Computed example of a mutant assay.
Amino acid sequence: MIFYDCSTAPSPRRARMFIAEKGLEIETRNISIADGEQFSEDFLKINQRATLPVLVTDEGSALTENTAIAAYLEARFPEPPLLGRDPDEKGRVAMWNTISEQQGGTAVAEAFRNAHPAMKGRALPGPLDLEQIPELAERGRRRVEAFFALLEARLQQSPWLAGDAFSMADITAFVFTDFARVIRARIPEDNEATQAWFGRVKTRPSASL
């Protein structure tokens, strides 16, 4: 297997944490998004969408989505389970992972890519050059606030997002909550359950990668 990573981007960090939580050592090649290496001829042969992460499997498939990478690694290396231990938990992991992607990750990206000067002409990842829309940046910031409130409500009921075990859903929510610093958004101090959860994830060795 070969893992194509970018040390500064949130999406590859999710896969990096998943790999670390599995205790795996996979050959890794760093692709610098800042230097535009995702648009190089060699990388486009691997992923024509010019996005990261990518896991090239032993069978030769290029998996370009975190959910696909997680599904493959979980199937090959089931311990420790990160996608759920029984049908009900698997459903909850999938649900909270998707919520964290759509309500958290997309919101942060919306705010960041539509406002930051470095993202001018790059409002969406991938090969298309798209202009920023300031109104979407403001909408993204409001959505991030709503996501933090959603996390707090859930984590007041459960130690981890999908139940009583750490899972892929926690990785996704943690990475995007941490990345919200790029739009100067932080977990509100009053959100004690979320602050405690964030602290627990942060102490895990995978979170330092």
Rank of each mutant, 00 (worst) to 15 (best):
I133Q: 10
L161C: 12
A70H: 01
L130C: 08
A15Y: 01
E101P: 04
G105W: 12
E110I: 05
A111I: 10
T28D: 06
E41W: 05
R113D: 09
E145V: 14
I33F: 15
A111M: 09
D190A: 09
A149Y: 11
S40Q: 04
A193S: 15
T28W: 05
S32R: 12
S7L: 08
D86V: 06
P127E: 10
T172E: 02
G199A: 11
T172H: 01
Q195F: 03
I133K: 08
A196T: 15
N191M: 09
R29Y: 06
P125Q: 08
S7F: 11
A146M: 12
R85C: 02
V56N: 00
A94V: 09
Q156R: 15
P125C: 09
P53E: 11
I26N: 01
A34T: 13
I99Y: 04
G104T: 07
T172Q: 01
W197T: 10
T194F: 05
A123M: 12
I69Y: 02
E192G: 12
Y72W: 10
F18R: 03
L55A: 01
L161N: 08
D178W: 13
D5W: 02
P81N: 04
A180V: 04
A196L: 13
N47I: 08
S208F: 14
W160N: 05
T57F: 07
T194I: 05
E145Y: 07
E59S: 10
P80A: 05
M119R: 07
A207R: 02
V108M: 10
